[in-house]
């Protein structure tokens, strides 16, 4: 394995991106998953469909719309510019936003499944024991839904590491800013550097296999709730 300095840099950038996206996604996706698991509103179906869109849309379509949405003439673009942040496309944070949208269903669904599997009764039992809503969430729902959160974490992280199309659309290939492993491999292949493409691709393959192996081993052991991949 002969990884060049720029290869190492893309690996670090990829890990940084995936970690940032996963942490932010868990914070954003948990309330959405909770709402989807509990609501009886007619909005449940449209919101579910919206969250799941990245499962079926080509990343280019998603990337294209995000590019327009975050562009200099859009509402978001004007807001970020007025805040002195410039525009988001072709920056690390633009990539974070796009990746969050793209990986959302992989994080929302395991959490939603876990919360649905717990049901209301343990939470009602906690309420009769004097636990308020926040207390119930942290002391009952969270521990019982832990396997679902683990799955969400792993899938969210792995899926962000593995994305390509949307990165190309939103991020391009700027070293240390948006050039992640998948893009680097593409560049290597385009410039016919097969040895380097091999090294990085091999690393990705091993990484992905190990992640899924760990996930399924854990699932098998726990027979736990809310662990289905995608759905």
């Amino acid at each position: 394995m002969n990884l060049s300095e720029s290869d190492i840099a893309t690996i670090w950038l990829t890990l940084k991106l995936a970690t940032t996206v996963t942490v932010l996604l868990l914070i954003v996706a948990t309330p959405i998953a909770w709402w989807l698991a509990k609501t009886r509103s007619w909005l449940k179906a449209p919101i579910s469909a919206l969250v799941s869109l990245p499962l079926v849309l080509p990343p280019t379509v998603l990337g294209f719309y995000l590019l327009l949405a975050m562009g200099p003439n859009s509402a978001i673009g004007k807001l970020t510019q007025s805040l002195g942040l410039g525009t988001l496309p072709f920056t690390f944070w633009g990539l974070v936003v796009a990746s969050m949208v793209y990986s959302m269903p992989f994080v929302v669904q395991p959490i939603q499944n876990a919360i649905e599997a717990i049901g209301n009764r343990p939470l009602e039992a906690a309420a009769t024991l004097g636990a308020g809503p926040v207390d119930r969430f942290f002391t009952v729902a969270l521990p019982l839904a832990k396997p679902g959160f683990m799955t969400a974490w792993v899938l969210g992280f792995a899926h962000t590491v593995g994305e390509f199309g949307i990165v190309l659309m939103i991020g391009g290939s700027i070293p240390n800013e948006t050039r992640v492993v998948s893009v680097q491999i593409y560049d290597h292949v385009e410039s016919l550097q097969y040895a380097q493409a091999h090294a990085l691709s091999g690393a990705m393959l091993v990484f992905s296999f190990v992640v899924l192996l760990v996930l399924y081993t854990y699932q098998h052991k726990r027979k736990a709730i809310g662990m289905t991949y995608g759905q």
């Binding site: 009764r121 343990p122 009602e124 309420a127 636990a131 019982l144 832990k146």
Partner: peptide, 20 residues
């Protein structure tokens, strides 16, 4: 009063112990 503010004990048909 919300349930958690009522001084009551409730035993459900199933025990609903916290499994963790």
């Amino acid at each position: 009063l919300a349930t958690h503010k009522r001084s009551l004990g409730y035993v459900f048909q199933e025990a609903y112990l916290f499994e963790h």
